[in-house]
Amino acid sequence: MTSGFETTRPTPIDYLDRLAATDAGRGYKQRMAEVFDLRPGHTALDVGCGPGTDLLALAEAVGHTGSVVGVDHDQEMVERAARRTAAHPRVEVRRGDVHSLPLDDATADRARTDRVLQHVEDPSGALAEIHRVLRPGGRLVMGEPDWDTLAIDHPDLEVSRAYTRHIVERVVRNAAIGRQLARLAARAGFGVPEVVPVTQIFRDVRAADKILGLERTTRRAVRAGYLTSDQARRWLDHLAHGPFLASVTLHIVVADV
């Protein structure tokens, strides 16, 4: 099973930086920034800030009178984010868990999560915790994919469906979180004035591979029994050499306190 696709998984830091640099990544992040309504003087919270990919843009938006707090549970991510923002005194990076944020009640004007809640143990608990730290009139903006919408063109539709089903059932913890966010946010006490669907289209198979890890995920699907080795071989051969098209929808959800 050889396809020319990546077989070595990138580090989490490399993956997050890579995603942010793609056209798809820049597009949905810009849309998130537009509805975030971040203003000079605000205190902004980036929940699951990773290696600090977005912290400098947030710092620029809040200006000299505002502040930015990045929180991540991973020590390596925290250290990388702290180094990247060391020259910006209004940015602070803290290690902490989304289920128990290291902030006092009602301390932030804005909060964001970017592809974070798909991985957490308790999305409802995380939303309640973010609600706790936001001030009255505050806003949370979330960007999360719905992996159940992943559609990859292939002559055998059942193989394509099996590949997506494997991701939904085995790979991503909260794979349908994108469609669930509005409901979960409302239950956590937020008003939800806007939901923005962003459908990402991939026509370059190599670009898609950098985000989707096509061969690595296919190998996992074989081991898990979703695809046979022969199906996987034909699947990857078509993806590598045939016309390619894939799409997945990410939901941007605006939630107000």
Rank of each mutant, 00 (worst) to 15 (best):
R18I: 02
I130P: 00
F190C: 04
G138W: 01
T149K: 05
D156Q: 13
I167F: 14
P12T: 01
G96S: 07
P123A: 02
K210W: 14
D209S: 05
R31Y: 01
H88E: 12
T43K: 02
W147H: 03
A240W: 10
S100E: 13
Q75M: 08
V35C: 03
T199S: 05
L236R: 04
L227A: 09
S247A: 14
A106I: 13
Q200I: 08
L140F: 07
N174I: 08
G137M: 01
I152R: 00
I201H: 13
S124W: 12
L19R: 14
E121V: 15
E34C: 13
M32Q: 06
H154G: 04
D230N: 13
E60A: 11
R183S: 12
H166C: 08
R80N: 06
R84D: 04
G41C: 06
Q118F: 12
L16R: 10
P40M: 03
P123N: 03
R9T: 08
A188W: 06
A126P: 00
L58R: 15
E121C: 14
R83F: 13
E60I: 06
E34N: 13
V195S: 08
P197W: 10
M142A: 14
L212S: 03
Y15N: 01
G27F: 05
H119K: 15
F190H: 02
G242Y: 10
R161P: 06
A111G: 06
P51N: 04
L239V: 07
A126M: 11
R139V: 06
S160P: 00
E144I: 09
V198W: 07
I211E: 12
L103Y: 09
R161G: 10
R39W: 13
A221R: 10
T113D: 09
S100D: 14
I13F: 02
A128K: 10
G225R: 13
T228C: 03
P40R: 03
R170K: 15
V172G: 06
T7F: 12
D14E: 15
I177A: 01
H42Q: 05
F190K: 02
D256Q: 08
V133S: 04
H88D: 09
R26E: 12
E34R: 15
G63W: 03
